[in-house]
Design a protein around this nucleic acid. Structure first.
Lengths: 192, 192
DNA sequence: ACCTGAACACCGTTCAAGT
DNA sequence: ACCTGAACACCGTTCAAGT
């Protein structure tokens, strides 16, 4: 849970902006999935009434789209940093292992998959395609030809996504030790 | 979409049982996620009013739990069949590639992950643990020691789950050709 | 500029009454 | 044995009125 600063307006009442709503929505999504983000419950978290929501957003879908755009921007920036690592081995290892820590971004990815909401699915697809592009580039830098690089990128990304789900869902990867051991084995097998 | 038989009762009205509701719910989940299964919408599909729902089930959660139990039973039976393949190589390949066809069970797995609903998450965890157990056994049969077999089972299962998500979510694995090529490469890399 | 509070349609749930 | 239809609480949405 992220803490939200409260600002006071002239009359002493609490005042919120769109960003506050989006951050609270991302917290709610990560914790309990798409259904967890009801307008009344987020309004309670923020200390306002649900009616005020519609000053900031046109609809619940609007909030969802805006929150996802924020998350996607963060994700893009994280990836851009990793992309600049000069050594392709290190780049591959870092993308795989760093993303393995289960923080809000990873929880969001799992919670929002298969939501059946088009705008959500499209955002997830863009994030996957970005990661695949960077992984693919790293394998190319290692000297693989185009088809091999694509195949390997896809396999390592699948192994990463699958492990994320296992982490949230089952007891199989529920400790740091188990996860570290998985990461070591996956890297040894998939990254030359 | 599965077609539902309609039976007539004495007065000529349509009559439904718990199984009809559960099948319709699974169709709805697979198509649009957990939110898609509203009682009124399923009732319309079945040609009855929403009030009749509560003759069969105590609550919406009840329907969800029952539908998941059915699905889990089917899944267990599928796995038991695969488990009986004598050749461990073939067992591994079949579990990986056969599950790769995107039918209702796979769509359900993706759609219901990260739902935030405890009973749902637990069912998914049991299914994952069952598949891991069978994969683990197959690697043992191939002569791997216990830690290696566990590591390999985990990696191949992650690669499978990750690919399922990519299939539903992005354009990366959106054709049979691409998926077949992925499966071939994954098997070559992960299954000795 | 941002919020409240009342209003309305819709979904989950209950239940008395129907066949 | 199974269904209807009315009722109620709750959430999404609108909007006039408040500061």
């Amino acid at each position: 849970m992220v803490m939200h600063k409260k600002r006071k307006n002239g009359a002493g009442a609490v005042s919120r902006n769109a960003d506050d709503w989006q951050e609270a929505a991302l917290d709610a999504f990560a914790y309990g999935g798409l259904r967890a983000a009801s307008i009344p419950s987020i309004a309670r978290t923020l200390g306002v009434t649900k009616g005020s929501f519609y000053w900031h957003f046109g609809s619940l879908d609007d909030l969802i789209a805006g929150a996802l755009a924020k998350w996607e921007k963060d994700d893009r920036e994280t990836l851009e940093t990793l992309e600049q690592l000069p050594d392709p081995h290190e780049r591959l290892r870092e993308i795989f292992s760093q993303s393995m820590e289960l923080r809000r971004p990873q929880a969001l990815f799992v919670a929002l998959s298969g939501s059946g909401v088009t705008v959500v699915e499209k955002a997830l697809a863009r994030m996957s395609e970005n990661r695949l592009r960077v992984l693919n580039k790293a394998y190319r830098d290692l000297g693989f030809d185009a088809p091999s690089a694509r195949e390997r990128a896809l396999l390592v990304y699948s192994a990463y996504v699958g492990a994320l789900y296992l982490r949230t869902q089952s007891a199989v990867l529920d400790s740091k030790g188990k996860t570290d051991s998985y990461v070591r084995h996956a890297i040894a097998t998939l990254i030359p």
